[in-house]
């Protein structure tokens, strides 16, 4: 039977570039480290997360050449895991987690007002279609519509900027909308996001 390589030799081999040594180290200590983390957090998913974060730190430290505890690999890894467990509890204390039950789901009360990915895509498409349609309008109507809708200007401000009366600006806006509807109907364009 092949004698087991010591941790310190595996660590040395890993630092020298032998990736296989890391696999042996992880598998060798998987159960001890997992049990240690699980005994504190009592949650399998959190255990996996902390185990993963622990070894990410281990990998970074070894690759950076900052490891100096020859022969004490497992206690060192356990100490990293221990610190991450403390971080986990601190984080949960700062931001208590509320988990809904079958009777009550918090997301039925508060919602995310952002559009979902599909609706956002449709909205972007409508916006770009609309931009092309607006380009079809006569310049005077286009100018008023852009100022009113995109620049959020009042009709008073529009009349001051374009040098026409408020009534003319209102009329141009009305004709702009009528013409837009005509173009949309003529080309059977569907602009909805329901």
């Amino acid at each position: 039977m092949k004698p087991l390589k010591e941790d310190s030799i595996l660590v040395h081999d890993y630092i020298s570039g032998d990736e296989k040594s890391l696999e042996i180290l992880i598998n060798r200590h998987n159960q001890r480290i997992s049990s240690f983390i699980y005994s504190k957090v009592m949650d399998r998913d959190v255990t996996e997360d902390i185990f993963q974060d622990t070894f990410i730190k281990v990998i970074k430290t070894l690759k950076k050449g900052n490891y100096s505890e020859e022969g004490k690999f497992l206690p060192w890894v356990m100490r990293i895991a221990h610190n991450l467990i403390i971080d986990h509890f601190r984080k949960n204390k700062r931001m208590p987690k509320f988990e809904g039950s079958d009777d009550f789901n918090i997301f039925s009360v508060i919602g995310d007002d952002k559009l979902n990915a599909e609706k956002q895509l449709i909205k972007d498409q409508i916006d770009s279609d609309l931009t092309l349609l607006i380009e079809e309008l006569p310049d005077d109507q286009k100018e008023v519509l852009l100022m009113r809708i995109y620049k959020d200007m009042s009709f008073k401000e529009i009349s001051e900027n374009t040098g026409v009366s408020i009534n003319t600006a209102l009329g141009r806006m009305r004709y702009a909308l009528i013409n837009l509807r005509k173009i949309i109907d003529r080309h059977n364009i569907v602009l909805t996001n329901s």
Binding site: I26, N27, N30, Q31, Y38, F51, Q52
Partner: peptide
């Protein structure tokens, strides 16, 4: 508990 093969 042992972490799964995916994590490894």
């Amino acid at each position: 508990p042992r972490v799964g093969p995916e994590t490894i």
